[in-house]
């Protein structure tokens, strides 16, 4: 079953001919050629596939593309180039939060989503917000530090 699905992807309107049951994760990687979104588990448990859908933080591996009809999808590629991203990226780099990097795009999406809701999160709130994103390389401390840094540096952005 192939349907026409129209959505806004990273600021552009896209019309795709796909099976509406296909996972948004696969559509983004295979049909839209976006590599920033990763599959770490395929079961909604690791956050490597994090995207924002109409501003809401979601796991694309559990999201059938049909549901995205008419919605706004933002992936890491859509964030790149924004002022927010610049602050986030610098903070992640400075805190040394990127190790193997496989979780990093998802982590940055989680940070963006948190800061949009709460530009001045406490350490506890950061831990809570990012607890759905697994990282097996780091001790997480650096990631928490990165978000704190971003929150401070990006004063007024979020």
């Amino acid at each position: 079953m192939i349907n026409e699905i129209t959505l806004r992807l990273n600021g552009e309107t896209r019309t795709l001919d796909v099976n509406p049951l296909k996972r948004l994760l696969d559509v983004l990687r295979e049909d839209c050629g976006l590599s920033g979104i990763k599959e770490g588990c395929g079961e909604g448990e690791c956050g490597a596939c994090s995207v924002l859908i109409d501003g809401v933080f979601m796991n694309a591996c559990l999201y059938p593309v049909g549901k995205a009809e008419g919605k706004e999808v933002i992936t890491i590629e859509g964030l790149v180039g924004t002022e927010n991203y610049e602050v986030l990226k610098e903070s992640f780099e400075q805190a040394g939060a990127v190790q193997c990097g496989f979780c990093s795009p998802g982590m940055i999406m989680a940070a963006e989503s948190l800061l949009r809701k709460n530009p001045h999160p406490t350490e506890h709130q950061i831990r809570e917000a990012i607890s759905g994103n697994l990282c097996r390389c780091t001790g997480y401390n650096m990631i928490v530090e990165a978000v704190q840094l971003a929150s401070k540096r990006g004063e007024g952005l979020w």
């Binding site: 976006l34 590599s35 920033g36 890491i76 780099e93 990097g101 795009p105 940055i108």
Partner: peptide
Amino acid sequence: EGMGLSMGKPAY
């Protein structure tokens, strides 16, 4: 490669 990875560039 930290920057490239966090931008989600094709790498893996």
